[in-house]
Design a protein around this nucleic acid. Structure first.
Lengths: 318, 318
DNA sequence: TCATGTGTTGAATAATTGCCCAACCGTGTT
DNA sequence: AACACGGTTGGGCAATTATTCAACACATGA
């Protein structure tokens, strides 16, 4: 089917072909090998390549009773407007597996709307994993706005700022914030926010219909620190003031109170959109994020949550 | 009743859970069995249940996926024994790009067979482009037979008769038809076909294991006319009789019926090999050829097709 | 009560898949 | 020319998954 000696692009093509024959047409790898004219081992490699390159996307479409029930209980216990709970895999240490797929499902659902919507996007590893699960789409009617700056302290683009990936994949208009994630001072931040272009983006963010964001922990592996946005001293200070979690850079304590001063004075992120007029959905799971999630839902910093069974149970046990 | 439906629900629940652990979390069935507290076999059954019940949805996010699906649909809609669809490039006006490479791949695959085969070859621009894509090979075990004469009305070799190019490239024995493409009359054609050497070639063609050929349109740019095989008047007459396409010189209408009389009386080509006992694969794409392709598959003048996405969709839309 | 049909189970086994390794190929460097 | 290197290939084998089969549970209706 394919000639030898061709480029890497062709390799992905073959991988897609193999993946299709395997996962959709149900061929064995031996049959695929025959059809593609390669050895069985190569067919196996192509199939696994299709998977590892994310060409193949698996989604599970069934409301598992326990998860549904947990979601309902979460909604009623914390006055959430939206909750989704996915099964837990006790052994897995991944902080994204499962919730990323579920988040992708939700994001896709919103984007399928023919009515134009404004979707605000936070940042983080979980969100990035979710975006990766999204299929290619064509949604020119929607606008996607970033809640955070996209420039790191060293001047490079922030890796976990995923608005470009998202807008690219779904062909929607993107409104990034061409700002550092943190300004050097409150004054600079306020000044930056005065700029007309930034103003427009901030206004757009405030009008978002739905927001998807992650929750960062503020323990010693806080992503805010690991990614170089705040110093070790600042992290310590935040912890001392009771900081347990962080959303688009805004740190808060276990009661969900935004901490006054410190790094919060410098966050250049947009304010989190209204939880009265729109859905603000956090995607987060895991024991380490528990205090952060608990704080965020307590004061309705968010009003929607995608998490897993274990986390849901822990939240309800409090 | 409630008990029954409850157990059924639980079973599906477990299936969903097992499917989730398997496809999303990447557990082995043994791990799943341990987590769900069932035997490994039961876990396997749950996983396969999740799949067969459609709980698990697999998607392939790559342009090739659509092509493979279209190929399957073509096969089932038109009872084809073979179909391949390549991605369309809407910008390109080439009538060969993509399909030529795919055809080359198929031809190569057949030629790689260690068992001796007989391959019949039609004529045309698309086929020529396909042959050009072929790598050099060494296939003395195979025989390649031309379905058409190789002499133009002016006595020169027909340019789009590609059997020599092909046989040369793959070092197989070639059986051309040392005849004009069209005789001057039915009587002459029949007489020519009586010649022992031609007889042998015709017999060989009838025994072909696989045939590759192109489809010519019968609009005002009909290659049959442009290459000087039929006059403008003859073309008009064919069009008037409903002619929409032509295969190795045989003209047919939109129902795939070979047109009686006219140029068909003079075609010196071999009959198209059996579609019951062998594969007859046409390589054709493009809007202009659409009626020709549609007619040919309708009556199974061919039982295999290599085309592109747009053409495949148009064929299926009829 | 008992045959009967339906559906589930685990053991055994067959089929398929995943992985390691040595060999090989093309490329660039000394 | 010799050589190292990154990447690919197919053989061999171990792990995993699918299927078959006999046994069994259980509801149903005679």
């Amino acid at each position: 089917m394919s000639l030898r000696s061709e480029t890497g692009n062709n390799r992905l093509d073959d991988a897609a072909r193999a993946g299709w024959l395997y996962y959709i047409a149900g061929n064995t790898q031996e049959e695929i090998a025959a059809k593609l004219g390669v050895s069985r081992q190569s067919a196996q490699r192509l199939v696994s390549l299709a998977m590892s390159e994310g060409l193949v996307k698996v989604r599970l479409d069934h409301p598992i009773a326990n998860c549904l029930e947990l979601a309902e209980r979460l909604k009623s216990a914390f006055a959430l407007d939206f909750a989704e709970v996915v099964p837990s895999d006790a052994n897995s240490t991944s902080t994204t597996i499962g919730v990323a797929e579920a988040a992708a499902g939700q994001i896709e659902k919103w984007l399928r709307s023919p009515q134009p919507i404004i979707m605000a996007i936070g940042t983080g590893r979980t969100l990035r994993a979710a975006i990766e699960q999204l299929p290619k789409m064509d949604c020119p009617q929607h606008r996607i706005v970033s809640l955070t700056g996209n420039i790191t302290p060293d001047g490079s683009a922030a890796y976990y700022n995923v608005i470009f990936n998202l807008a690219d994949k779904v062909k929607a208009r993107a409104f990034p914030m061409p700002l550092p994630v943190f300004a050097t001072s409150r004054e600079e931040r306020d000044l930056l926010h005065q700029q007309p272009m930034i103003r427009t983006t901030l206004d757009l963010a405030a009008k978002a219909n739905v927001t998807f964001l992650g929750i960062g922990e503020l323990n010693d592996e806080a992503p805010l620190h690991e990614d170089g946005f705040i110093s070790a001293d600042e992290l310590k200070a935040l912890q001392k003031s009771g900081g347990v979690g962080e959303i688009v850079g805004w740190s808060y304590d276990r009661e969900g109170r935004i901490i006054e001063g410190m790094s919060n004075d410098r966050v250049a992120s947009a304010p989190i959109p209204s939880r009265d007029k729109s859905l603000v959905i956090a995607i987060a799971k895991g024991e380490k994020k528990l205090p952060g999630i608990a704080g965020a839902i307590k004061r309705r910093i968010i009003n929607g949550l995608i998490t897993d069974e274990l986390t849901a149970e822990a939240l309800l046990a409090e």
